[in-house]
């Protein structure tokens, strides 16, 4: 049999399960947070006292307020108090595909024709001859 919580009122006789439900909910949350054992229990008891045994949502709201007041709601931080990152700082580089001439005979023909056209019709350098 649990001890009656010090709320100044008796546990409502008609809702013992509701009280247990709220208790289990906040206890589960502080267990999941992996807080130091007594710290977590203290916060759970405080939240249940403040919210009363009526609903789990009220108890959870109260617990979240207490966690925020105690600075225990900031998530996972690194040694310098910043949110952790799984990646190092970027050092951007370029990696693009070089053009691939997959049909070199076509481009070879094209190069040959362009060179021939240049030879036939391109500008000529004067080199002393007429």
């Amino acid at each position: 049999m649990t001890s009656i919580p010090e709320t100044g009122t008796n546990t409502p006789a008609g809702f013992p399960d509701e009280w247990r439900y709220s208790r289990d909910r906040v206890l589960l949350y502080v267990r999941a947070l992996d807080l130091p054992p007594f710290r977590g229990l203290d916060l759970a008891v405080e939240s249940l006292k403040a919210a009363g045994p009526t609903s789990a949502s009220e108890a959870m709201n109260k617990l979240r307020e207490l966690l925020a007041e105690n600075g225990l709601d900031r998530g996972i931080l690194d040694e310098e108090g910043r949110h952790i990152s799984s990646m190092p700082s970027l050092n951007r580089g370029v990696m693009v595909a070089e053009p691939l001439d997959r049909l070199p005979w076509k481009s070879a023909l094209g190069r040959f024709l362009r060179r021939w056209r240049r030879n036939l019709f391109g500008p000529w350098e004067t080199n002393g001859h007429a």
């Binding site: 999941a32 947070l33 992996d34 998530g75 996972i76 949110h83 952790i84």
Partner: peptide, 13 residues
């Protein structure tokens, strides 16, 4: 969605 530590880790990342 449930575990507060896993939730914090995921949202941090």
């Amino acid at each position: 969605a449930v575990d507060p530590l896993v939730h914090s880790l995921h949202t941090s990342l």
